[in-house]
Amino acid sequence: MVTAASTAARGVRRTAVEPEAAAATAQRAVRVLRVLEKTYPDQRPLLRYDNAYQLLIAVILSAQTTDAQVNRVTAALFAALPTVQTLAEATQADVERYIHSTGFFRSKARNIRAAAVVLRDRFGGQVPQSMQELLSLPGVGRKTANVIRGALFGLPAIIVDTHFARVTRRLELTAAAAPERIESEVAALLPPESHYSFSMCVNYHGRYRCHARRPDCGQCEIRALCGYPRLIG
């Protein structure tokens, strides 16, 4: 017979197991990081930039295109518009001409011009550090803000892009689909000082090994820490 007492007891046992499971997952996440840090020792962004202004604009432009494509256009863009002030004063047509090949170029041009105006008028031409202030910039979401916080300022930053979401789900570090939920769940598994390194390592692993359609599980450096190979046979 199922009684209230037995149900309560099961509830106690279930909640008692959860911290242990979370601790085991956290330990595995740290082990994943240790392996991937050796595999990908250079954890800098693939986007080319010389300063905070350039990285911010490059990350905004990277939406729905490749970093390689962004690098091809930003060389000319930054040569013509080298500062926040020059971008803020540029016309829509001027900016579109440089970034046309990145896709969604009209909205991107509007966003980076508007972001430059906000940087000039509210932040003295400087890229801010806080999440709230970064999110106030046109074209900046949490992913872009976390790239800036981690790469420029050395702050804790979980960067959720398609590669990161795919790999962390395959590793069973999260089952979430929403980027913010993935960010919070993975962040809880790792020390804050490891967040940015983990993000970059996992991103690279998704690019070079754990591909969307044909993951290279046979050569995967973290195969022993991942349940995905068992799922695909």
Rank of each mutant, 00 (worst) to 15 (best):
Q92Y: 05
I158F: 08
L81Y: 02
Q92L: 14
V140T: 10
Q92G: 11
Q85E: 15
V140Y: 07
A115T: 11
V70T: 08
R113T: 08
F153L: 12
R72Y: 05
R106A: 13
Q69S: 14
A145I: 08
T91L: 03
I99W: 02
P82K: 01
G141F: 06
D121G: 11
P138T: 01
E96A: 04
Q85F: 07
R97W: 08
V84I: 12
P82H: 03
T86H: 07
T83A: 09
P82S: 04
I148T: 02
F105H: 10
T174Y: 01
A116D: 05
R72G: 13
Q129S: 13
N71F: 10
V84F: 06
T86V: 08
R113G: 09
A109K: 01
T168V: 12
A90C: 08
A116R: 02
P128V: 03
G125H: 04
R97C: 14
A76Q: 12
Y98A: 05
L135D: 11
K108L: 06
S130F: 05
R142Y: 06
A165M: 02
V160S: 05
Q69V: 14
F104G: 11
E89Q: 15
L135C: 11
G154H: 07
P138F: 00
R120H: 14
T102Y: 00
I112A: 03
F78G: 03
Q132M: 04
R170K: 09
F123Q: 09
H163E: 10
L155Q: 10
I159T: 06
R122T: 14
V160F: 02
A75T: 15
R113K: 15
R72N: 12
T174R: 02
T91P: 03
K143G: 05
A80N: 12
T83D: 07
T91Q: 01
R142M: 10
A115D: 10
G150N: 04
G125P: 14
D161E: 09
Q129E: 14
G139I: 07
A90V: 00
A80R: 14
T91C: 02
H100N: 09
T162N: 12
